[in-house]
């Protein structure tokens, strides 16, 4: 990865330059390809800090305890899933590098070992999800399968107050264009039916006195979904051509 600090050496164009009688005019410093990123932006940190689940980010002192125990990093072995690094990039505002992880950040499984172990009380799992939200809000990451699932789950839950598990399964499969083999569905359905567990559609469980709560929570959900996009975030670039190489 490039050095993250302002560049001291710039390309210089000289019309006329004599050095001890020798004409050395021309373009200077062009052979020094900058390895330095200059356009860091604290707006990312401000955005994450301003989010109700991101405020603990400023306690992080980069010890890496979260990543050392992270099941995605160590057990599953996805080396680029590195919560300490995601936090670091958000802290210094290095968006160009952060966006390289657009398809990685969402894969946190929320096991909360990082939150458990953080010696500084950072809610790492929530901060990482907030960084994921930043990437989506600023148009740097597409909506992930997990985001689609969260939405399907929440809509399903708010409908009756109690989750309709079979319906969630069907809805989500449709969203992803996936099809579980009919044989498997049938086998599961029969087992559920036989044991009196097929509570779906008209037979779904419903929370009592839910209608009013539903409309209040749906309104709140809609308000929070209009989470402001960071201003100009997507236009910012990093000066270094080699930027983003780790």
């Amino acid at each position: 990865m490039p050095i993250v600090e302002p560049s001291l050496v710039e390309v210089q164009r000289t019309e006329r330059l004599d050095l001890e009688g020798i004409d050395v005019s021309g373009d200077w410093n062009t052979f020094l390809r900058s390895r330095v990123a200059v356009d860091l932006d604290v707006k990312i940190l401000d955005w994450v800090k301003g989010h109700p689940q991101g405020d603990t980010i400023s306690r992080c002192w980069q010890c890496g305890t979260c990543t050392a125990g992270c099941c995605m990093h160590t057990d599953y072995g996805l080396q680029e899933f590195n919560p300490r690094y995601f936090i670091y990039l958000a802290q210094i505002g290095y968006e160009e590098e952060l966006r390289r992880y657009a398809d990685t950040v969402w894969r946190c499984v929320s096991c909360n070992k990082c939150v458990e172990r953080c010696p500084k009380g950072v809610k790492v799992e929530e901060v990482v999800h907030t960084i994921g939200s930043y990437l989506i809000a600023s148009g740097l990451a597409p909506e992930s399968p997990a985001d689609r699932f969260d939405r399907a789950y929440t809509e399903n839950l708010l409908r009756h107050g109690i989750l309709d598990e079979a319906d969630l399964f069907r809805t989500y499969e449709r969203l992803e264009g996936r099809k579980t083999p009919a044989r498997q569905i049938l086998r599961m359905g029969l087992t559920l039916l036989r044991s009196g567990r097929l509570h779906t559609g008209p037979f779904a469980h419903r929370a009592r006195r839910w209608a009013q709560m539903r409309s209040v929570l749906r309104a709140q959900l809609a308000r929070d979904a209009r989470c402001p996009a960071p201003t100009g975030a997507a236009d910012r670039t990093v000066a270094a051509e080699g930027g983003g190489v780790r």
């Binding site: 109700p52 999800h129 985001d147 939405r151 929440t154 709140q220 929070d224 979904a225």
Partner: peptide, 8 residues
Amino acid sequence: VKNLSQDV
């Protein structure tokens, strides 16, 4: 749900 709305 928390990934969509803190208050909900």
